[in-house]
Design a protein around this nucleic acid. Structure first.
Lengths: 247, 247
DNA sequence: GGGCGACATTAACATAGGTAAGGTTGCGGC
DNA sequence: GCCGCAACCTTACCTATGTTAATGTCGCCC
């Protein structure tokens, strides 16, 4: 639970002690806290820092002129919001806290310093950003091709597996702070239909969702109704095993 | 039309002659041609090169087990497919030619060399990849929140503006090679509904689409039915104007 | 010049999912 | 102990979009 970024990056590669120290230092600097539903950065602002989520859930979202809102991504502990964002003149979307959140701001100079001195970390961050892009693509597939039940199941599988990689699950359960409205804004469906869909998943014993806790008794089964294939998360890397001779 | 990548990157920053030479060299190496509908790389393969589209249209797509297909992105002249892909063990999706296509393969070493020696290019490529990510996010919004008419209009606006930035439009027209089936696979709708939607846009004089040529007589009007806001393309950069003292 | 395949079009019907409205529960504040 | 509010749940009804299938059009090959 501590240092979720280090834990996550080690899914990809073995890090030296110096690398870990660097990451720990970065994660301990410029710490900020936000309460649930507060905006971390808003569309139109100039991005000055890369945000690293240390604790809690955040989300990217975008609002259309007429008020419709789409949640575009979730940030879980250990996730980074856009390497190098500061290149852009202004944010084209907002980032908001879903739960109370603790983040570290990474400045341009700190980022450059890290990229220069730590090739292992550089590689690992590239990997993390390629995975983030892959997740975004999978959301496109999800919204374009899957029906409501598959879509919901797919989201739950993805979040659960990502939380697992960040060390935020215990057994087959995890905290699950999203309201049905937020699920609707994520999956492009009405709250009524979110509710119907959750009921259906519950009735099939595919999920238990109560008191902000999600339990997935049979992940394989849920994956199968979701047509979920974890390849896009690129977690199956041999890194941890093959490079075990190092350190 | 020649060197669409250079043309595109100059929307972001001014490049030195050395930078341009470098980009021209990269674009002239390892050139490959594909015919329409041929796969450039397939899901499951190991990515070895960054593909740069020199001519023609390509697309990313993903197929579900049961055959449903989602087009995830279009690559137009000047577009790069995933900086640093070679970090990943295998492709989680396929890239296919839409029209006959000419690409350049950029090897890991050529890429690293370019990143080391040309900070201007490095910056510009970061910008290009941040924009690609922003486009992917906008597609999420599109599929999640907009209805069929808005969705179609939005896609047409985006493609037109991107083609313009690549120098592939003339006046208010451009080549438009997509079939209605491909539009359907992109927008998550049936071909029948694609057809209805196009008819509706034609009836409102928002588009003329015939013989693989698209004309948008009034882009503002089309943008307005699409709730299209071009911010996410980050083209409004001052680069070209303010840095005009250089070279 | 006839036939075939890819694409576009149209119509008739079916359904997943949206909308509107209202009810229940639980909780923090006073 | 009750008010107010947010989340959740439910029902009834409606509509955007999917499905199926028939038909049209065009270019291309033998």
């Amino acid at each position: 639970m501590r240092r979720p970024l280090i834990r996550k990056l080690e899914k990809f590669t073995r890090l030296s002690q110096a690398d870990k120290n660097m990451l720990a230092k970065i994660g301990g600097q410029r710490v900020r806290r936000f309460s649930a539903r507060e905006d971390i950065i808003h569309e139109g602002e100039k991005p000055e820092y890369i945000n690293l989520i240390n604790e809690g859930w955040a989300c990217r979202y975008k609002t259309l002129e007429d008020g419709r809102r789409q949640i575009i991504a979730f940030f879980l502990p250990g996730d980074l919001c856009d390497l190098n964002v500061f290149i852009l003149k202004e944010m084209d979307h907002s980032i908001g806290a879903v739960t109370p959140v603790v983040i570290s701001e990474i400045s341009r100079t700190a980022f450059d310093e890290m990229m220069m001195g730590h090739p292992r970390i550089t590689q690992a961050l590239w990997w993390e950003s390629l995975v983030a892009a892959a997740i975004q693509r999978e959301w496109t597939v999800n919204l374009g091709q899957r029906d409501a039940l598959e879509r919901m199941a797919h989201l739950l599988c993805e979040l659960f597996i990502r939380l697992e990689a960040a060390g935020c699950t215990s057994d087959s359960s995890c905290e699950f702070p999203l309201t049905q409205t937020e699920l609707g804004d994520t999956l492009g469906m009405s709250t009524v239909h979110v509710n119907r869909t959750l009921q259906e998943l519950r009735a099939s014993n595919l999920i238990v969702l109560k008191d902000r806790t999600l339990t997935i008794p049979n992940l394989k089964a849920l994956q199968s109704v979701a047509l979920f294939n974890a390849n896009y998360l690129h977690l199956d890397h041999e890194g941890t095993h093959l490079d075990a001779n190092e350190e």
